[in-house]
């Protein structure tokens, strides 16, 4: 990936002391398989965290636990002061505070771009339609595709669809954004447009947890990189030290593989 104009970006991004997500001693099993083992993680508001690791290491599962797309079996997850339990009301409250962007975009193919963006604000936040559409157009401008508002997702390129997906999450005015490999399903020439959108978002102070293999993005934006393997957090550090001075053997091996070519 080419290095975007982000040298000045880092200075603008500030981390507050307020805790956004608190995960304590969290474990998760798929049947007998222990996917997540004793995860402890505190994310402060304004932090940009990149989660890396080999496939099957549980990184997607972990961020999916944060908005309860996956259920954890022990430990505690507190998002914005709300603990995630099986209480449906709490789950809905957390989900409307936490935006999520998926690897395969998951836009609603039967709705126009504008309808994709206004659906949740209208039905979940009970925003009047006119206002929801104004917000939607604002965010479409932001991701630089306002002219696509009345098309259907199937008519857009992958990069455009992913930017729409980001805008769709933003329309709910979330306080935390989760990205689950947002660029993995994209052609190389489209990765940059999506990463630029994410960088812009980071500059505005959004709390972000991002599972990605884009190490350039991690170096440019993240204030913390977490390396996971076998369902555990193996190493976490600031990007500079993480990439230049990895401590564990597992991390070194991983980095040599993905940065080697």
């Amino acid at each position: 990936m080419s290095e975007p104009n982000i040298q000045s970006a880092r200075a603008k991004m500030q981390v507050s002391d307020e805790v956004a997500v608190q995960i304590t001693a969290m474990n998760k099993w798929y049947g007998q398989f222990h996917v997540l083992r004793d995860i402890n993680l505190t994310v402060n508001r304004g932090e940009r965290i990149v989660i890396a690791g080999p496939s099957g290491s549980g990184k997607s599962t972990m961020i999916r636990c944060i908005n309860r797309l996956e259920e954890h079996q022990s430990g505690q997850i507190i998002v914005d002061g709300i603990e995630l339990t099986s209480d449906l009301k709490n789950i809905d409250k957390v989900r409307s505070e936490v935006g999520m962007v998926f690897q395969h975009f998951n836009l609603f193919p039967h709705l126009t771009i504008l309808e994709n963006l206004t659906l949740a604000p209208i039905w979940v936040r009970k925003v009047p339609k006119r206002e929801a559409e104004e917000t939607a157009m604002y965010f479409l401008e932001k991701v630089k595709i306002p002219e696509q508002a009345h098309k259907y997702p199937g008519q857009l390129s992958g990069g455009q669809q992913q930017r729409v997906a980001i805008a769709r999450s933003l329309c709910m005015k979330p306080r935390i954004m989760l990205f689950d490999e947002p660029t993995s399903a994209l052609d190389p020439e489209m990765i940059k447009e999506v990463l630029d959108t994410m960088i812009e978002l980071a500059e505005e102070g959004m709390t972000m947890l991002c599972v990605t293999h884009e190490m350039g993005f991690a170096q440019a934006v993240a204030n913390r990189v977490i390396f996971m393997a076998d369902g555990q957090i193996v190493e976490q550090n600031n990007p500079h030290d993480f990439f230049n001075n990895p401590q564990s053997e597992r991390t070194k091996q991983f980095l040599s593989q993905i940065l080697g070519h």
Binding site: D92, F102, N106, V124
Partner: peptide, 18 residues
């Protein structure tokens, strides 16, 4: 329908009937 459609609806905070 792909699972992603359910997940996207959930992630946006829509309830089951919505």
């Amino acid at each position: 329908l792909p699972r992603g459609q359910y997940e996207a609806a959930d992630a946006l905070g829509l309830d089951y009937w919505q």
